[in-house]
């Protein structure tokens, strides 16, 4: 049984439809990437999983439907989300941002905080800084850290590399791999940067104008023109 199973998802902003009949499943222990150009519907798909959009269709987590669950219950049942624009709390310190992430997992605070600071030693050094004064890379780390504080088994990251320097991208890729290998998390990311996605994920899905148009392993997809079409400009 897949950990996350999405069936015939149609998402709407008012009357405008942003996703068309998207079906997708994520196996436990895998790293999956959804690749697509700006406006393809990547963020809408992830927001829908978190119960933050209007949609039809079904979403199952560990076999239980979460399609009409409240966001807080989805978080509490083990889904951590690091969104595209981070949505951090700007006038709170790094540490307090992380502590808010622990809202539904209060028993695991010391273990999770320890894990986050081991993965991102820089956050430990700057734990007293307000996130409004931080760089993009640091904010991405706080955002990932905050998601990890809820003890997720499935980590969802929207464009982990957007706007980040190549060196920081490598750092983030390393962390995502470690989360899967050492902490047995399942990881679902989106990317416009197809090279990053192909180098990290075992399974890649191509999203174009709200529809999944191709899927496969990086080896199968690296020569697929639909992938090139979906992210032209980023090759």
């Amino acid at each position: 049984m897949a950990m996350l199973d999405i069936k015939n998802l149609n998402a709407f902003y008012g009357k405008a439809q942003a996703l068309h009949d998207v079906s997708l499943s994520v196996e436990e222990g895998s790293i999956i990437a959804i690749v697509g150009a700006n406006g393809a519907g990547k963020s809408t798909l992830l927001d829908s999983i978190m119960g933050l959009t209007q949609f039809t269709g079904d979403i199952h987590l560990d076999g239980r439907s979460i399609a009409s669950a409240r966001t807080r219950d989805i978080v509490a049942s083990g889904v951590g989300y690091a969104p595209e624009r981070f949505n951090l709390f700007p006038y709170m310190t790094v540490r307090d941002n992380l502590m808010v992430g622990a809202y539904t997992a209060r028993g695991d605070i010391s273990r999770n905080l320890d894990m986050v600071y081991r993965l991102f030693p820089r956050l430990k050094e700057r734990e007293k800084q307000e996130t409004s004064s931080q760089s993009g890379g640091e904010r991405q780390m706080v955002s990932l850290g905050r998601a990890l504080m809820s003890s997720p088994r499935l980590l969802i990251v929207d464009e982990p590399t957007i706007g980040l320097a190549p060196k920081v991208c490598l750092e983030i890729a390393e962390v995502l791999k470690r989360l899967r290998d050492d902490f047995s998390l399942t990881v679902l990311i989106t990317e416009q940067n197809a090279n990053f996605a192909l180098s990290l994920a075992e399974q890649v899905q191509v999203l174009e104008s709200g529809q999944l148009v191709a899927s496969g392993t990086p080896a199968e997809l690296s020569s697929d023109e639909r992938l090139a079409a979906a992210y032209f400009g980023h090759a």
Binding site: T71, V75, A76, F86, N87, F89, R146
Partner: peptide
């Protein structure tokens, strides 16, 4: 400070 950030923190 951030309604969406709060929501996805549970």
């Amino acid at each position: 400070m951030d309604a969406k950030g709060a929501a996805i923190s549970g």
